[in-house]
Structures are given as C-alpha cells and as structure tokens.
C-alpha cells in the first residue's frame, strides 16, 4: 500500500482562472523520503493542503495512509504530521508550552512518544523556557518538527521546511529527516531548492502545476538525453554571449563558476570545436569539459521541453 497517492488531481482558484494543480498523479511508498521539487507558485502548497484535507480538489482522488482525503478526512487528521509553509509556532509561548500544547491538541503527551522526538528535542530542551519568538531560525525549525511529530504520525508532510534557513541548519534538518526515515516514517517534503533533491530517495519535479518527472535523483540525472559541456574563461559573460551567437550551440546558460553548453549535433570533437571558436573571438584561458548534469540542469531541460509542447 502506498502511504500517499494522488490520481489526476486538479485544483483551480479564482473561479477556474488560475490553475494551481494540473492533473497531478504520483505515489509515495511507505517509509519513503520523497521530495516535491519546484519553484514558488508551482502548486506544491496546494498539493500539501489537499493531502492534509484542508483543501478540496476540483477533480481527481487522493489518499493518505490508505484513507481518502475527502471521505475519511478525520482518520487522516489523526495520522499525519504537518508543517505548513508559513508555520511559525506561537511566538509568545515557550518551547515547552508549544510542545505541550500541540501534544494535547493531538490527544497525546510529550512522554508518550518521547523516543521519536528525543534526538531532536534534546538539542532544544536546554532552552525549554525560552519563548519561540526568541529562538534562532534553526531552533524554531527543530521545534516545529517536534510539534509535527508529537503524535507519532504515519506520514510526515513538510511544506518547504528549509526556506529561509541557513545552510548549516538546513544540513542538520536533512540529517534529522534521514533519522526519521530510519524509524519507518513516510516523509513527503517540498523544496524550491534543486540542490536538496539529491537528499531524497525519489523526487517529483513540478512546475506550473504539472509534474515533469517522478524518479530517483540518480535516474533523473541519467535520463538527461544529451551531453552537457561546462565552460569558463577569464570573462565568462563575454564567453557566454559569444557561444550564444555560435550556430553549433543549441543553448548556453550561466550556472555558477562554469557555464553550461548544449550543442546542436553531438560530435566527438565538440570540445575542440567550442574551444577554437571561443579563442577565435578573443576569449582567454578557455576551459571546456564534459560535466554530469545536475537536477537543476534536468529541470531546465524538462521545463523547456514542456514549454515547447
């Protein structure tokens, strides 16, 4: 049985004028760490709200922990842990008060499922009497996770938990998720950051309400259909502009230190060809190599393919 399942889910807002979720289907297996990856406005939050039963889909069906999101919403509400995107706890309550409150709301106590949250809670319990409003971003996030876990949910739904959190806290957060997965909890997490995709077992790439692909991160990268070249020089901007004017280049875009280049026709000597061309136009210290595509490269490829349809 799948822990989460969506079948042809549609959701529109503003009397059908804004399409938020467009025929989305995917399944999350029991005990899986599944990532929903896409930019702001892709429809991630709507999907989460449909799964947590606080929003009704226009069409399609979905289930969480084996229960239908419409008919059996009460059963779901007992079984999911949920961190909404803008969730920020009660700023004027202390760590302990927040946790106790959510424990009671879910009809349990901190002690009952202490094992589950122990590892996370131990990191913040020294500050038990500090108000949530006075905590750092990383600590708030840990507390929020504790609150979502307090009733030992079967499925954990985390909507953009790492947005606005610094790199150190983000890394710690993903480590915590891995721990939770070890304990058998199914986790569906969304993020706009492509670099976090590799930390999931499987991912769904989503844009404009449409799923572009559902795969393991490795397979998504493997499925990249063409060779990707990376290039840099003393003046990357000039090099980029020059390549864009080159007939043999299908697309060229900036991507950090090395820009990415895709050529129109694969050729064993593409590197030499590109290099010669670049040097002819006065670029110095040109370095060109074949590079493994990242999730982000794939996302760009897939969304451009989608756009050309």
């Amino acid at each position: 049985m799948d822990a989460v399942s969506l079948k042809n889910i549609h959701k529109t807002y503003d009397k059908g004028n804004v399409i938020a979720v467009d025929d989305v289907s995917f399944d999350v297996k029991k005990g899986e760490l599944f990532g929903l990856i896409g930019p702001d406005g892709a429809g991630k939050t709507s999907i989460f709200r449909i799964l947590t039963t606080v929003l009704l889909a226009d069409k399609g069906s979905a289930s969480v922990a084996g229960f239908d999101v419409v008919k059996e919403y009460r059963a779901i509400r007992n079984r999911v842990g949920y961190m909404p995107g803008k969730f920020s706890l009660y700023q004027d309550l202390t760590i302990k008060e927040n946790l106790e409150f959510f424990a009671t709301v879910f009809d349990t106590s901190i002690e009952e499922n202490y094992d589950l949250i122990k590892n996370i809670y131990d990191q913040i319990s020294p500050f038990n009497d500090r108000r949530a409003g006075k905590l750092s971003g990383g600590m708030k996030q840990k507390l929020a996770l504790c609150c979502a876990l307090i009733h030992k949910p079967e499925v954990l739904l985390l909507d953009e938990p790492t947005t606005g959190v610094d790199a150190v806290s983000r890394k710690e957060f993903w480590d915590m998720l891995k721990d939770l997965k070890q304990q058998g909890i199914t986790i569906l997490v969304s993020t706009p950051y492509m670099d976090e995709a590799n930390l999931c077992e499987r991912i769904a790439l989503i844009q404009n309400g449409k799923i572009l692909s559902v795969e393991t991160p490795e397979n998504i990268v493997k499925a990249f259909p063409v060779t990707l070249y990376a290039a840099k020089s003393d003046n990357n901007y000039k090099l980029l502009t020059d390549f864009r004017n080159f007939d043999a280049v299908a697309s060229a875009y900036a991507s950090g230190e090395y820009m990415r280049i895709i050529v129109k026709d694969e050729h064993p000597d593409s590197i030499t060809l590109l290099k010669d061309y670049a040097e002819k136009f006065g670029n110095r210290n040109v370095e060109i190599k074949i590079i493994a595509p990242t999730i982000e490269d794939n996302f760009i490829w897939l969304s451009q393919k989608e756009a050309n349809h």
Partner: peptide
C-alpha cells in the same frame, strides 16, 4: 530564492 531554474538563469 524560490525562483524557477529557467528564470534564475
């Protein structure tokens, strides 16, 4: 932050 990769490029 949060912008889709194509736009970001």
């Amino acid at each position: 932050g949060g912008v889709d990769p194509v736009t970001r490029r």
